[in-house]
């Protein structure tokens, strides 16, 4: 996550660097600069493309819920809301389950089972998102409609206060379904990163803790997880980045309705789903520009998430006195 790139080695014996060395340095520098240039280029072209919409609607673009191609009234609020809500649902489920998988694999799993389960989780990460989308629509959504959603509506839906979040009718698809699919998709990221970093915890620490009579729960909670916290945050942020930008699978199951519904069982839309759905047939310049502006919003959000991750990592490091 955070690799110190500015580390310099002292020139051994004050030797003049060979010309090959200079070229090599130049090439690696160029490779690094290409990344920066691409990033900047993407931002600039998104901004230019989004300008007509931003100019027309101003800051109102971010607070208007309407998405009306007939009257050309476009606002980012509904897709923004859907993006954030589905990602939150995904993280609420995927983070604890992913950590659980990782702890099981490193601590309690019988040795012969470790490899098969580990490989299965990595295979899960390799499943293309369109497969999740098709499976979500044809298998998961009907199951949600006939089983899970009626149950939620009848139980949580009647609880005062939170009932509005689980109001019917059961469509099968919707924000909750999309969030669950996203959770399945980001789970392998979290689980495999967590497993890798748990393995880096020195056995000495673990054994010392067990030696002091700590339980498994205490060892993991107080020794293992704090030791690798920064890497865990990094893995979680990577997963969040994927959840925010995931397109195909979400498009299949979210319902693609640019509305803000209180109930998470109702259809919504996300930024990437809206772009994927509407870009080919965006017939006017303002329409196209509004979609590009949505892309810009997603770009900025992802950027902020990663920046926040870096900030957190630095804080944790400082506290740890590294």
């Amino acid at each position: 996550m955070s690799i110190a790139v500015h580390q310099t080695f002292p020139n051994p014996a004050g030797r003049k660097p060979a010309s090959g060395e200079t070229i090599f340095r130049g090439l690696t520098l160029a490779a690094a600069l290409i990344v920066l240039a691409t990033l900047l280029g993407v931002f600039v072209s998104l901004f230019l493309g989004a300008w007509p919409a931003l100019h027309r609607y101003g800051l109102g673009f971010f607070v208007i819920q309407a998405w009306n191609p007939v009257t050309e009234k476009f606002g980012a609020l509904a897709p923004l809301y859907g993006t954030i809500v589905t990602s939150i649902i995904a993280m609420i489920i995927a983070v604890p389950v992913g950590l659980g998988i990782a702890i099981f694999l490193t601590e309690t799993c019988p040795r012969p089972l470790r490899r098969p389960i580990g490989i299965a989780i990595e295979l899960l990460a390799g499943v293309p998102s369109i497969i999740y989308g098709i499976w979500g629509l044809f298998v998961f959504a009907p199951f949600m409609q006939t089983t899970v959603q009626p149950f939620l509506i009848d139980t949580l839906g009647t609880v005062p206060g939170i009932g509005d979040f689980f109001a019917g009718p059961p469509y099968g698809i919707g924000m909750l379904t999309a969030g669950l699919i996203l959770a399945i998709m980001v789970l392998p990221f979290i689980a495999s990163i967590a497993r890798e970093v748990f393995l880096t915890v020195p056995d000495m620490l673990r054994e010392a803790a067990y030696g002091m009579g700590m339980t498994r729960w205490e060892v993991n909670r107080s020794i293992v997880i704090p030791h690798v916290r920064s890497a865990l945050v990094g893995g979680t942020m990577l997963a969040l980045g994927r959840a925010l930008g995931e397109t195909m699978a979400v498009t299949f199951v979210i319902g693609n309705a640019p509305r803000i519904a209180t109930s998470i069982l109702q259809p919504g839309t996300t930024i990437s789903a809206a772009i994927a759905n509407e870009f080919t047939e965006a017939t006017t310049n303002l329409y196209t520009s509004s979609l590009i502006a949505l892309g810009l919003v997603l770009f900025v959000i992802t950027f902020l998430v990663l920046a926040a991750a870096q900030l957190m990592l630095q804080r944790i490091k400082r506290r740890a006195g590294e």
């Binding site: 469509y171 640019p258 509407e278």
Partner: peptide, 14 residues
């Protein structure tokens, strides 16, 4: 009337 409109209800599919 348009190739896409602001639907008051329902789910969208591609």
């Amino acid at each position: 009337v348009n190739t896409s409109v602001q639907w008051p209800v329902g789910v969208g599919a591609k």
